[in-house]
Design a protein around this nucleic acid. Sequence first.
DNA 1: TCAAATAATTCAACCAATAAACAAATCAGG
DNA 2: CCTGATTTGTTTATTGGTTGAATTATTTGA
Lengths: 353, 353
Amino acid sequence: MAAATGLTRATVSALVDDLVTGALLTEREPAPRTGAGRPAVGLVVAPDGPAGLGLEINVDYRGACVVDLAGTIRHRLVEPGDQRLQDPQTVLEGLGRLAARARALAEADGLTVAGAVLAVPGLVAADGVVRIAPNLGWQDVTVGDLPDGLAMTVDNEANLAALGERDLGELPHDFVYVSGEIGIGAGIVLGGALYRGSRGWSGEIGHIPIHSDGPACRCGARGCLEQYAGQEAVLRAAGVDTVGALARAATAGKPDALAALTAAGAALGMAVATVVNLLDVRTIVLGGSYASLLPWLREGIAAEAGRRVLTAAWSPVQLRAATLGPDAAMLGAAGSVLRGVLDDPAAWLARRP
Amino acid sequence: MAAATGLTRATVSALVDDLVTGALLTEREPAPRTGAGRPAVGLVVAPDGPAGLGLEINVDYRGACVVDLAGTIRHRLVEPGDQRLQDPQTVLEGLGRLAARARALAEADGLTVAGAVLAVPGLVAADGVVRIAPNLGWQDVTVGDLPDGLAMTVDNEANLAALGERDLGELPHDFVYVSGEIGIGAGIVLGGALYRGSRGWSGEIGHIPIHSDGPACRCGARGCLEQYAGQEAVLRAAGVDTVGALARAATAGKPDALAALTAAGAALGMAVATVVNLLDVRTIVLGGSYASLLPWLREGIAAEAGRRVLTAAWSPVQLRAATLGPDAAMLGAAGSVLRGVLDDPAAWLARRP
DNA sequence: TCAAATAATTCAACCAATAAACAAATCAGG
DNA sequence: CCTGATTTGTTTATTGGTTGAATTATTTGA
């Protein structure tokens, strides 16, 4: 550890001591084999210290999960149900009860929940107000702390999913996570850090223009990516009702399904080319429903991107499926609570004397 | 200064002393008025310390400029002439002579040139090789130090122009500088820092797709922005030869010129909408030939961007003309030399005992 | 002219990190 | 089974940069 940080062994010892007494690190038995010489003391991130509570409200479910510092998912609660049928306050009350259950489970394990982060599919302002979440029907919804007093912050679903992929996937320092749900959002990670934009509204890839005079979009413009590669457009073109049915139809070789996916891939490829030309990221992670559809989308995206990315000849765009599946945003939310602890461990140590 | 940094007055005093003895700061006479009490000692950045040498090779000229720490342009040398007619080595030798003249002028003023940065209109790899500069006809050109031994680095013209605008213009922390020359490049400034991308090839806005089946572009794809808003396309559509002639024709109300500019504005507006949706920057700076054409482009850009930017209703996109004019890249290059000194003043102090 | 206000300097004390010496625990080999 | 080599962890005095409080300097306003 001293070699990696450039600090002296003595300094590292002193700092590690603080973290061990503060229960952020634990000495592991037995000591790991290090060859000749006195064996090093094994250290693991404490699995019974602070935990992150990740929450999510999406179109057809709400969920909560508890993740510990070691990154293992300790609890996961999901309540299916269309969240558009109730008004925001009722939804938030239900979420509060779910969060309280998850927190109780965590504390029964000896964990201390350090905070909560909520993922929503919409634009979130810096002050924690959900400006607009079109697919939830939310507008200017203020989200406060949880009923039991736990601090809660809100963030965009794609942003949090990108953070989740960053922390748990094997990804380079720069990548863009594209979340294909009913809307299409993106989380942009540059230099290992999430780029939120000056007001936190970055990544609205769903409204990149694909054809200037294409079909009207609910945003008011025409020909947005969402009208070509959004879930509703693709399912309609394929003549099926769900993403699962689409995957089955494509596996079965149904022409309508394959044509719909090819068209979506071409549109996505244009958007990917735009992103890569602009940001010079070499990795694009496809999440949400795109993760399971990638086998049929890949060729179309790669062809279009290969043609349009200026630097494709030197280094082609890497397309990857997201590894965290549908829980990515929820897990990323929990992870971002823990990241807060890791970014300022002294604050955590001060909280427990 | 102590209040601004959070350090003690004693600490600030000690640090400032170092900078004054190292000739990076100078005490100014007379002391500024600060109200009641002992007046503060005025401090100015030393105008006779290190200087930056900014160099540029562009399609029809090469230039050099010397900028001091206070930001004033001390010397400016420009040699017009088509740089495409000679091979790269000959061009670089001519640039070396120009740089030597500029350096001699600077040293006659008592300045010490701390380094040189060269702006080129092309893709520059991290190791300082110009991968490709299509409008110069350069490919894989290695640019070493200057003949007199001064360290020189190379960077993209739009990137450096963006840095120049950042340092000298009144701009927010996040903005995108769009450079409209024969190609269209962009310099992306996020959080006050230039975002270069993982390989230094960010900002290739000229190849954002506008119409998937538009005219063929020299990049191999079809319908790139450059085919709609690039200098050659716009001049051809307007039926004139130079940007100056285009501006005169537009002032005179010639229908061809106005139509060409309206079309270019609409295409630029689509690209701007893409950039803003993706990065959530609220300010777009238009440079190069766009700076002088902005009066006729503005309406088209604003209309298209207003329609397509998701957050336009809350905060419209701000369009600004670049303030540095055609020298932006050269000045930004000089500025980035000085930025290197400011980022690590201790290294500079160590160089002069 | 004097008190209040603001700036700058001095100096002892502190803190985190360093370097070097030392102690501890293992492996390899005779 | 003992010894030397090797690596890890701790102890100690030292250092460099910052702090805090006291002191000095220089102006404004009554």
